[in-house]
Design a protein around this nucleic acid. Structure first.
Lengths: 230, 230
DNA sequence: TCGCAAGTGCGAACAGCGTGCGCAGATGCT
DNA sequence: AGCATCTGCGCACGCTGTTCGCACTTGCGA
Protein backbone atom coordinates (compact mmCIF):
# COMPACT_ATOMS: atom_id res chain seq x y z
CA UNK A 1 0.00 0.00 0.00
CA UNK A 2 1.46 3.29 -1.07
CA UNK A 3 -0.83 5.30 1.15
CA UNK A 4 0.87 3.98 4.22
CA UNK A 5 4.32 4.23 2.72
CA UNK A 6 5.60 6.33 5.59
CA UNK A 7 4.60 3.59 7.97
CA UNK A 8 1.31 2.19 9.10
CA UNK A 9 2.85 2.15 12.52
CA UNK A 10 3.54 5.87 12.52
CA UNK A 11 -0.05 6.41 11.54
CA UNK A 12 -1.32 4.40 14.47
CA UNK A 13 1.00 6.29 16.75
CA UNK A 14 -0.40 9.54 15.46
CA UNK A 15 -3.94 8.33 16.06
CA UNK A 16 -3.03 7.25 19.57
CA UNK A 17 -1.54 10.65 20.31
CA UNK A 18 -4.73 12.25 19.05
CA UNK A 19 -6.78 10.04 21.35
CA UNK A 20 -4.59 11.03 24.25
CA UNK A 21 -4.97 14.69 23.43
CA UNK A 22 -8.71 14.34 23.13
CA UNK A 23 -8.91 12.73 26.53
CA UNK A 24 -6.58 15.37 27.94
CA UNK A 25 -8.75 18.14 26.51
CA UNK A 26 -11.78 16.60 28.18
CA UNK A 27 -9.94 16.29 31.48
CA UNK A 28 -8.76 19.86 31.16
CA UNK A 29 -12.27 21.14 30.61
CA UNK A 30 -13.53 19.23 33.62
CA UNK A 31 -10.93 19.70 36.31
CA UNK A 32 -8.66 22.47 35.07
CA UNK A 33 -4.95 22.58 34.31
CA UNK A 34 -3.67 22.16 37.85
CA UNK A 35 -5.59 18.95 38.44
CA UNK A 36 -4.91 17.41 35.06
CA UNK A 37 -3.27 14.06 35.70
CA UNK A 38 -1.48 11.71 33.37
CA UNK A 39 -3.04 8.74 35.12
CA UNK A 40 -6.55 10.04 34.65
CA UNK A 41 -5.88 10.58 30.97
CA UNK A 42 -4.52 7.06 30.73
CA UNK A 43 -7.61 5.66 32.42
CA UNK A 44 -9.73 7.64 29.99
CA UNK A 45 -8.09 6.16 26.93
CA UNK A 46 -7.95 2.71 28.54
CA UNK A 47 -4.21 2.37 28.89
CA UNK A 48 -1.76 1.85 31.68
CA UNK A 49 -0.42 5.15 32.88
CA UNK A 50 3.09 4.13 31.98
CA UNK A 51 2.10 3.53 28.38
CA UNK A 52 1.31 7.21 27.98
CA UNK A 53 5.01 7.88 28.17
CA UNK A 54 5.51 6.09 24.84
CA UNK A 55 3.71 9.05 23.24
CA UNK A 56 4.35 11.96 25.56
CA UNK A 57 7.59 12.67 27.37
CA UNK A 58 6.08 14.09 30.53
CA UNK A 59 3.11 15.82 32.04
CA UNK A 60 4.68 19.14 31.14
CA UNK A 61 4.93 18.14 27.50
CA UNK A 62 1.30 17.11 27.58
CA UNK A 63 0.42 20.53 28.92
CA UNK A 64 2.58 22.15 26.28
CA UNK A 65 0.70 20.27 23.58
CA UNK A 66 -2.57 21.45 25.07
CA UNK A 67 -1.24 25.00 25.14
CA UNK A 68 -0.31 25.08 21.46
CA UNK A 69 -3.61 23.37 20.76
CA UNK A 70 -5.49 26.07 22.63
CA UNK A 71 -3.53 28.81 20.89
CA UNK A 72 -4.43 27.34 17.52
CA UNK A 73 -8.06 27.04 18.48
CA UNK A 74 -8.28 30.54 19.88
CA UNK A 75 -6.49 31.88 16.82
CA UNK A 76 -8.93 30.10 14.55
CA UNK A 77 -11.87 31.49 16.49
CA UNK A 78 -10.53 35.01 16.15
CA UNK A 79 -9.89 34.46 12.45
CA UNK A 80 -13.36 33.25 11.61
CA UNK A 81 -15.00 35.95 13.73
CA UNK A 82 -13.00 38.62 12.00
CA UNK A 83 -13.51 37.16 8.54
CA UNK A 84 -17.24 37.70 8.81
CA UNK A 85 -16.88 41.45 8.91
CA UNK A 86 -16.81 43.71 5.87
CA UNK A 87 -13.21 43.95 4.61
CA UNK A 88 -13.23 47.73 4.47
CA UNK A 89 -14.86 48.13 7.87
CA UNK A 90 -11.76 48.18 10.00
CA UNK A 91 -13.61 49.10 13.17
CA UNK A 92 -16.01 46.23 12.55
CA UNK A 93 -13.17 43.82 11.92
CA UNK A 94 -11.43 44.87 15.11
CA UNK A 95 -14.63 44.62 17.08
CA UNK A 96 -15.40 41.18 15.65
CA UNK A 97 -11.92 39.89 16.41
CA UNK A 98 -12.04 41.13 19.99
CA UNK A 99 -15.50 39.69 20.51
CA UNK A 100 -14.41 36.42 18.95
CA UNK A 101 -11.60 36.16 21.46
CA UNK A 102 -13.94 36.85 24.37
CA UNK A 103 -16.53 34.35 23.17
CA UNK A 104 -13.95 31.62 22.82
CA UNK A 105 -12.58 32.39 26.27
CA UNK A 106 -16.03 32.23 27.84
CA UNK A 107 -16.70 28.92 26.12
CA UNK A 108 -13.33 27.42 27.06
CA UNK A 109 -12.32 29.06 30.32
CA UNK A 110 -9.79 26.42 31.33
CA UNK A 111 -8.04 26.45 27.99
CA UNK A 112 -7.99 30.22 28.08
CA UNK A 113 -6.48 30.14 31.55
CA UNK A 114 -3.90 27.72 30.24
CA UNK A 115 -2.60 30.20 27.69
CA UNK A 116 -3.33 33.58 29.26
CA UNK A 117 -3.29 32.76 32.95
CA UNK A 118 -0.19 32.30 35.00
CA UNK A 119 2.20 29.84 33.38
CA UNK A 120 1.72 26.52 35.11
CA UNK A 121 4.46 23.97 34.21
CA UNK A 122 7.91 25.05 35.27
CA UNK A 123 6.82 28.54 34.42
CA UNK A 124 8.98 29.04 31.37
CA UNK A 125 7.08 28.80 28.10
CA UNK A 126 8.74 26.39 25.68
CA UNK A 127 9.81 27.76 22.32
CA UNK A 128 7.25 25.57 20.62
CA UNK A 129 4.40 27.71 21.89
CA UNK A 130 5.43 31.01 20.33
CA UNK A 131 4.47 29.97 16.82
CA UNK A 132 0.80 29.15 17.39
CA UNK A 133 0.57 32.06 19.80
CA UNK A 134 0.95 34.54 16.97
CA UNK A 135 -2.03 33.28 15.02
CA UNK A 136 -4.62 35.33 16.87
CA UNK A 137 -2.35 38.30 17.23
CA UNK A 138 -1.68 38.30 13.52
CA UNK A 139 -5.34 38.99 12.86
CA UNK A 140 -5.18 42.22 14.82
CA UNK A 141 -1.94 43.12 13.08
CA UNK A 142 -3.49 42.65 9.64
CA UNK A 143 -6.29 45.03 10.51
CA UNK A 144 -3.79 47.74 11.35
CA UNK A 145 -1.84 47.05 8.17
CA UNK A 146 -4.93 47.12 5.99
CA UNK A 147 -6.28 50.26 7.59
CA UNK A 148 -2.94 51.97 7.16
CA UNK A 149 -2.71 50.89 3.53
CA UNK A 150 -6.21 52.21 2.90
CA UNK A 151 -5.22 55.48 4.51
CA UNK A 152 -8.37 55.61 6.60
CA UNK A 153 -6.65 55.56 9.96
CA UNK A 154 -6.79 58.94 11.66
CA UNK A 155 -5.59 58.17 15.14
CA UNK A 156 -4.09 60.88 17.25
CA UNK A 157 -0.90 59.92 18.98
CA UNK A 158 -0.85 61.95 22.15
CA UNK A 159 2.00 60.32 23.97
CA UNK A 160 5.20 60.11 22.02
CA UNK A 161 6.51 56.59 21.64
CA UNK A 162 10.20 55.90 21.39
CA UNK A 163 11.28 54.00 18.29
CA UNK A 164 13.07 51.44 20.42
CA UNK A 165 9.98 50.34 22.34
CA UNK A 166 8.88 47.68 19.89
CA UNK A 167 11.04 44.96 18.40
CA UNK A 168 11.94 46.04 14.85
CA UNK A 169 11.63 42.60 13.34
CA UNK A 170 8.01 42.37 14.47
CA UNK A 171 7.31 45.76 12.98
CA UNK A 172 8.67 44.68 9.60
CA UNK A 173 7.18 41.21 9.58
CA UNK A 174 3.72 41.76 10.99
CA UNK A 175 3.14 45.50 10.74
CA UNK A 176 4.69 46.70 7.48
CA UNK A 177 3.90 50.30 6.78
CA UNK A 178 2.31 50.90 10.15
CA UNK A 179 3.62 53.87 12.11
CA UNK A 180 5.37 53.23 15.38
CA UNK A 181 2.69 55.14 17.22
CA UNK A 182 -0.16 53.10 15.77
CA UNK A 183 1.76 49.89 16.26
CA UNK A 184 2.37 50.64 19.92
CA UNK A 185 -1.26 51.63 20.29
CA UNK A 186 -2.18 48.32 18.72
CA UNK A 187 -0.05 46.29 21.09
CA UNK A 188 -1.55 48.23 23.98
CA UNK A 189 -5.05 47.43 22.77
CA UNK A 190 -4.09 43.80 22.30
CA UNK A 191 -2.94 43.65 25.90
CA UNK A 192 -6.05 45.49 27.06
CA UNK A 193 -8.37 43.06 25.29
CA UNK A 194 -6.87 40.08 27.03
CA UNK A 195 -6.62 42.04 30.24
CA UNK A 196 -10.36 42.62 30.11
CA UNK A 197 -11.09 39.00 29.30
CA UNK A 198 -8.79 37.78 32.06
CA UNK A 199 -10.33 40.13 34.59
CA UNK A 200 -13.79 38.92 33.70
CA UNK A 201 -12.88 35.25 33.64
CA UNK A 202 -10.77 35.30 36.77
CA UNK A 203 -13.43 37.07 38.78
CA UNK A 204 -11.82 40.46 39.28
CA UNK A 205 -14.85 42.30 37.94
CA UNK A 206 -17.26 40.57 40.30
CA UNK A 207 -18.80 43.21 42.50
CA UNK A 208 -17.74 46.10 40.31
CA UNK A 209 -19.13 45.45 36.87
CA UNK A 210 -22.75 44.44 36.48
CA UNK A 211 -22.89 43.80 32.74
CA UNK A 212 -19.71 42.13 31.56
CA UNK A 213 -20.60 42.14 27.90
CA UNK A 214 -21.57 45.80 27.84
CA UNK A 215 -18.42 46.63 29.73
CA UNK A 216 -16.27 44.74 27.26
CA UNK A 217 -18.05 46.44 24.38
CA UNK A 218 -17.44 49.82 25.93
CA UNK A 219 -13.77 48.99 26.23
CA UNK A 220 -13.54 47.87 22.62
CA UNK A 221 -15.36 51.00 21.51
CA UNK A 222 -12.79 53.07 23.34
CA UNK A 223 -10.01 51.17 21.59
CA UNK A 224 -11.56 51.55 18.16
CA UNK A 225 -11.81 55.25 18.81
CA UNK A 226 -8.25 55.46 20.03
CA UNK A 227 -6.92 53.62 17.00
CA UNK A 228 -8.63 56.12 14.75
CA UNK A 229 -10.98 53.74 12.98
CA UNK A 230 -14.08 55.69 12.01
CA UNK B 1 -0.22 38.96 83.56
CA UNK B 2 -2.85 41.24 82.19
CA UNK B 3 -1.11 41.56 78.88
CA UNK B 4 -1.79 37.94 78.08
CA UNK B 5 -5.31 38.08 79.38
CA UNK B 6 -6.72 36.81 76.12
CA UNK B 7 -4.57 33.74 76.45
CA UNK B 8 -0.86 33.12 76.22
CA UNK B 9 -1.80 30.08 74.24
CA UNK B 10 -3.65 32.03 71.59
CA UNK B 11 -0.61 34.21 71.27
CA UNK B 12 1.66 31.25 70.68
CA UNK B 13 -0.78 29.93 68.13
CA UNK B 14 -0.71 33.26 66.35
CA UNK B 15 3.07 33.22 66.32
CA UNK B 16 3.09 29.68 64.97
CA UNK B 17 0.72 30.67 62.20
CA UNK B 18 2.98 33.57 61.35
CA UNK B 19 5.96 31.22 61.18
CA UNK B 20 4.03 28.94 58.87
CA UNK B 21 3.07 31.84 56.65
CA UNK B 22 6.64 33.07 56.54
CA UNK B 23 7.86 29.66 55.47
CA UNK B 24 5.05 29.42 52.95
CA UNK B 25 5.95 32.82 51.51
CA UNK B 26 9.53 31.67 51.11
CA UNK B 27 8.43 28.45 49.46
CA UNK B 28 6.10 30.41 47.20
CA UNK B 29 8.87 32.72 46.07
CA UNK B 30 11.14 29.79 45.33
CA UNK B 31 8.98 27.21 43.61
CA UNK B 32 5.77 29.01 42.72
CA UNK B 33 2.15 28.42 43.70
CA UNK B 34 1.66 25.13 41.88
CA UNK B 35 4.58 23.42 43.59
CA UNK B 36 3.92 24.81 47.05
CA UNK B 37 3.56 21.82 49.34
CA UNK B 38 2.30 21.56 52.89
CA UNK B 39 4.97 19.04 53.69
CA UNK B 40 7.77 21.30 52.51
CA UNK B 41 6.40 24.12 54.62
CA UNK B 42 6.24 21.77 57.58
CA UNK B 43 9.83 20.72 57.05
CA UNK B 44 10.81 24.37 56.85
CA UNK B 45 9.28 25.22 60.22
CA UNK B 46 10.49 21.95 61.74
CA UNK B 47 7.15 20.28 62.30
CA UNK B 48 5.43 17.12 61.24
CA UNK B 49 3.31 17.75 58.18
CA UNK B 50 0.19 16.70 60.02
CA UNK B 51 0.80 19.31 62.71
CA UNK B 52 0.32 22.04 60.13
CA UNK B 53 -3.33 21.12 60.08
CA UNK B 54 -3.69 22.37 63.66
CA UNK B 55 -3.24 25.86 62.25
CA UNK B 56 -4.42 25.63 58.68
CA UNK B 57 -7.39 23.66 57.47
CA UNK B 58 -5.97 22.63 54.12
CA UNK B 59 -3.51 23.49 51.41
CA UNK B 60 -6.19 25.60 49.79
CA UNK B 61 -6.66 27.64 52.95
CA UNK B 62 -2.92 28.15 53.11
CA UNK B 63 -3.01 29.47 49.57
CA UNK B 64 -5.97 31.66 50.43
CA UNK B 65 -4.01 33.17 53.31
CA UNK B 66 -1.12 33.83 50.96
CA UNK B 67 -3.53 35.43 48.51
CA UNK B 68 -4.98 37.89 50.99
CA UNK B 69 -1.44 38.48 52.22
CA UNK B 70 -0.30 39.31 48.71
CA UNK B 71 -3.30 41.55 48.12
CA UNK B 72 -2.50 43.50 51.26
CA UNK B 73 1.14 43.80 50.31
CA UNK B 74 0.39 44.90 46.78
CA UNK B 75 -2.21 47.35 48.07
CA UNK B 76 0.30 48.79 50.50
CA UNK B 77 2.89 49.15 47.74
CA UNK B 78 0.41 51.03 45.58
CA UNK B 79 -0.58 53.24 48.51
CA UNK B 80 2.93 54.28 49.41
CA UNK B 81 3.89 54.85 45.78
CA UNK B 82 0.85 57.03 45.25
CA UNK B 83 1.30 58.90 48.51
CA UNK B 84 4.64 60.26 47.34
CA UNK B 85 3.05 62.28 44.56
CA UNK B 86 1.76 65.82 44.90
CA UNK B 87 -1.86 65.71 46.09
CA UNK B 88 -3.14 68.02 43.40
CA UNK B 89 -1.22 66.28 40.62
CA UNK B 90 -3.79 63.68 39.67
CA UNK B 91 -1.88 62.51 36.63
CA UNK B 92 1.20 62.09 38.79
CA UNK B 93 -0.73 60.20 41.42
CA UNK B 94 -2.20 57.87 38.83
CA UNK B 95 1.16 57.31 37.24
CA UNK B 96 2.80 56.63 40.59
CA UNK B 97 0.11 54.16 41.60
CA UNK B 98 0.37 52.27 38.32
CA UNK B 99 4.14 52.19 38.50
CA UNK B 100 3.98 51.07 42.10
CA UNK B 101 1.83 48.12 41.09
CA UNK B 102 4.23 47.15 38.32
CA UNK B 103 7.30 47.44 40.54
CA UNK B 104 5.75 45.25 43.19
CA UNK B 105 4.75 42.69 40.57
CA UNK B 106 8.26 42.58 39.12
CA UNK B 107 9.71 42.13 42.59
CA UNK B 108 7.22 39.44 43.61
CA UNK B 109 6.25 37.63 40.41
CA UNK B 110 4.93 34.51 42.09
CA UNK B 111 2.77 36.41 44.54
CA UNK B 112 1.49 38.54 41.69
CA UNK B 113 0.64 35.43 39.71
CA UNK B 114 -1.14 34.13 42.75
CA UNK B 115 -3.57 37.03 42.79
CA UNK B 116 -3.78 38.09 39.16
CA UNK B 117 -2.99 34.87 37.35
CA UNK B 118 -5.40 32.05 36.84
CA UNK B 119 -7.06 31.03 40.08
CA UNK B 120 -5.23 27.95 41.34
CA UNK B 121 -7.10 26.28 44.26
CA UNK B 122 -10.51 24.98 43.34
CA UNK B 123 -10.77 27.94 41.04
CA UNK B 124 -13.41 29.83 42.94
CA UNK B 125 -12.09 32.73 44.99
CA UNK B 126 -13.20 32.54 48.62
CA UNK B 127 -15.16 35.47 49.99
CA UNK B 128 -12.32 36.30 52.34
CA UNK B 129 -10.18 37.56 49.48
CA UNK B 130 -12.46 40.30 48.22
CA UNK B 131 -11.77 42.61 51.16
CA UNK B 132 -7.98 42.91 50.82
CA UNK B 133 -8.36 42.93 47.06
CA UNK B 134 -9.98 46.34 47.15
CA UNK B 135 -7.08 48.02 48.91
CA UNK B 136 -5.07 48.72 45.78
CA UNK B 137 -8.13 49.45 43.70
CA UNK B 138 -9.34 51.97 46.25
CA UNK B 139 -6.25 54.07 45.60
CA UNK B 140 -7.17 54.46 41.95
CA UNK B 141 -10.76 55.20 42.93
CA UNK B 142 -9.71 57.98 45.29
CA UNK B 143 -7.74 59.66 42.53
CA UNK B 144 -10.85 59.79 40.35
CA UNK B 145 -12.93 61.10 43.25
CA UNK B 146 -10.41 63.79 44.14
CA UNK B 147 -9.97 64.88 40.55
CA UNK B 148 -13.71 65.08 40.10
CA UNK B 149 -14.11 67.07 43.30
CA UNK B 150 -11.40 69.47 42.19
CA UNK B 151 -13.15 69.86 38.87
CA UNK B 152 -9.95 69.41 36.92
CA UNK B 153 -11.04 66.35 35.01
CA UNK B 154 -11.72 67.09 31.38
CA UNK B 155 -12.07 63.66 29.85
CA UNK B 156 -14.03 63.21 26.69
CA UNK B 157 -16.42 60.28 26.78
CA UNK B 158 -16.68 59.12 23.22
CA UNK B 159 -18.48 55.86 23.67
CA UNK B 160 -21.69 56.12 25.62
CA UNK B 161 -21.77 53.92 28.68
CA UNK B 162 -25.04 52.49 29.93
CA UNK B 163 -25.86 53.28 33.52
CA UNK B 164 -26.35 49.62 34.31
CA UNK B 165 -22.83 48.58 33.38
CA UNK B 166 -21.29 49.22 36.78
CA UNK B 167 -22.62 48.02 40.10
CA UNK B 168 -24.38 50.98 41.75
CA UNK B 169 -23.14 50.18 45.24
CA UNK B 170 -19.55 50.40 44.10
CA UNK B 171 -20.26 53.74 42.47
CA UNK B 172 -21.67 55.14 45.70
CA UNK B 173 -19.13 53.64 48.04
CA UNK B 174 -15.88 54.07 46.16
CA UNK B 175 -16.65 56.64 43.48
CA UNK B 176 -19.01 59.23 44.97
CA UNK B 177 -19.59 62.13 42.65
CA UNK B 178 -17.79 60.51 39.75
CA UNK B 179 -19.68 60.34 36.48
CA UNK B 180 -20.59 56.95 35.07
CA UNK B 181 -18.43 57.61 32.05
CA UNK B 182 -15.35 58.46 34.05
CA UNK B 183 -15.98 55.58 36.42
CA UNK B 184 -16.22 53.10 33.57
CA UNK B 185 -13.11 54.61 32.02
CA UNK B 186 -11.41 54.15 35.36
CA UNK B 187 -12.34 50.50 35.63
CA UNK B 188 -11.14 49.98 32.06
CA UNK B 189 -7.82 51.56 32.92
CA UNK B 190 -7.57 49.48 36.06
CA UNK B 191 -8.03 46.35 34.00
CA UNK B 192 -5.57 47.60 31.39
CA UNK B 193 -2.87 48.27 33.98
CA UNK B 194 -3.01 44.73 35.28
CA UNK B 195 -3.39 43.42 31.77
CA UNK B 196 -0.13 45.10 30.83
CA UNK B 197 1.63 43.84 33.93
CA UNK B 198 0.34 40.32 33.38
CA UNK B 199 1.38 40.32 29.73
CA UNK B 200 4.85 41.43 30.69
CA UNK B 201 5.21 39.01 33.58
CA UNK B 202 3.73 36.02 31.81
CA UNK B 203 5.92 36.46 28.77
CA UNK B 204 3.38 37.54 26.20
CA UNK B 205 5.37 40.62 25.25
CA UNK B 206 8.56 38.67 24.62
CA UNK B 207 9.46 39.09 20.98
CA UNK B 208 7.17 42.05 20.43
CA UNK B 209 8.14 44.68 22.96
CA UNK B 210 11.77 45.57 23.39
CA UNK B 211 11.55 48.01 26.29
CA UNK B 212 8.97 46.85 28.80
CA UNK B 213 9.23 49.86 31.04
CA UNK B 214 8.88 52.38 28.24
CA UNK B 215 5.97 50.40 26.87
CA UNK B 216 4.21 50.41 30.22
CA UNK B 217 4.86 54.12 30.59
CA UNK B 218 3.40 54.74 27.15
CA UNK B 219 0.30 52.83 28.15
CA UNK B 220 -0.08 54.76 31.37
CA UNK B 221 0.39 58.02 29.49
CA UNK B 222 -2.41 57.01 27.16
CA UNK B 223 -4.62 56.28 30.13
CA UNK B 224 -3.85 59.55 31.86
CA UNK B 225 -4.73 61.31 28.65
CA UNK B 226 -7.92 59.35 28.25
CA UNK B 227 -9.03 60.09 31.80
CA UNK B 228 -8.62 63.78 31.17
CA UNK B 229 -5.92 64.48 33.73
CA UNK B 230 -3.78 67.38 32.46
C1' DT C 1 8.89 -15.69 3.05
C1' DC C 2 11.50 -15.62 7.24
C1' DG C 3 13.83 -13.48 11.16
C1' DC C 4 15.07 -9.76 13.50
C1' DA C 5 14.81 -5.34 15.44
C1' DA C 6 11.92 -1.94 16.61
C1' DG C 7 7.72 -0.48 18.51
C1' DT C 8 4.27 -0.80 22.01
C1' DG C 9 1.93 -1.90 26.19
C1' DC C 10 1.85 -3.61 30.98
C1' DG C 11 2.75 -4.16 35.91
C1' DA C 12 5.47 -3.22 39.66
C1' DA C 13 8.04 -0.01 42.06
C1' DC C 14 9.80 4.48 44.16
C1' DA C 15 9.36 8.90 45.95
C1' DG C 16 6.46 12.47 46.95
C1' DC C 17 2.01 14.61 47.78
C1' DG C 18 -2.59 16.06 50.77
C1' DT C 19 -5.00 14.60 54.50
C1' DG C 20 -7.38 11.95 58.55
C1' DC C 21 -6.91 9.41 62.90
C1' DG C 22 -5.49 8.00 67.40
C1' DC C 23 -2.30 8.76 70.93
C1' DA C 24 0.56 11.23 74.13
C1' DG C 25 2.34 15.07 76.47
C1' DA C 26 2.17 19.90 77.77
C1' DT C 27 -0.43 23.65 79.81
C1' DG C 28 -3.82 27.33 80.77
C1' DC C 29 -8.18 27.69 83.36
C1' DT C 30 -11.27 26.68 87.45
C1' DA D 1 -4.60 20.42 92.10
C1' DG D 2 -6.95 18.44 88.49
C1' DC D 3 -9.03 18.47 84.38
C1' DA D 4 -10.09 19.63 79.79
C1' DT D 5 -8.19 21.52 76.02
C1' DC D 6 -4.57 22.29 72.97
C1' DT D 7 -0.76 20.89 70.26
C1' DG D 8 2.33 17.99 68.01
C1' DC D 9 3.59 13.31 66.23
C1' DG D 10 3.60 8.92 63.76
C1' DC D 11 1.23 6.16 60.86
C1' DA D 12 -1.73 5.15 57.19
C1' DC D 13 -4.41 5.66 52.83
C1' DG D 14 -4.95 6.86 48.29
C1' DC D 15 -3.40 9.68 44.95
C1' DT D 16 0.31 11.59 41.85
C1' DG D 17 4.58 11.59 38.08
C1' DT D 18 7.96 8.75 36.40
C1' DT D 19 11.19 4.71 35.55
C1' DC D 20 12.36 0.06 34.48
C1' DG D 21 12.27 -4.63 32.92
C1' DC D 22 9.58 -7.73 30.69
C1' DA D 23 6.47 -9.54 27.19
C1' DC D 24 4.27 -9.37 22.88
C1' DT D 25 3.16 -7.78 18.40
C1' DT D 26 4.49 -6.33 13.90
C1' DG D 27 6.58 -3.80 10.04
C1' DC D 28 10.64 -4.17 7.29
C1' DG D 29 15.07 -5.77 5.08
C1' DA D 30 17.14 -9.84 3.14
Amino acid sequence: MEATATGVRAQAKQAMLEAILTAARRQLAEVGPAALSVRAVARDVGMASSAIYRHVASRDELLTLLITDAYEDLGAAIETAESEAERGDYAGRFRAAALGARCWALAEPHRYALVYGSPVPGYIAPEATIGPATRGTAVFARILVDATAAGTVTHVSRSQIGHAVLVPQVMHEFLPGVSIELAALGVLCWAEIFGLISFELFGHLVGSVADNEAFFDAGVSEMVDRLGFG
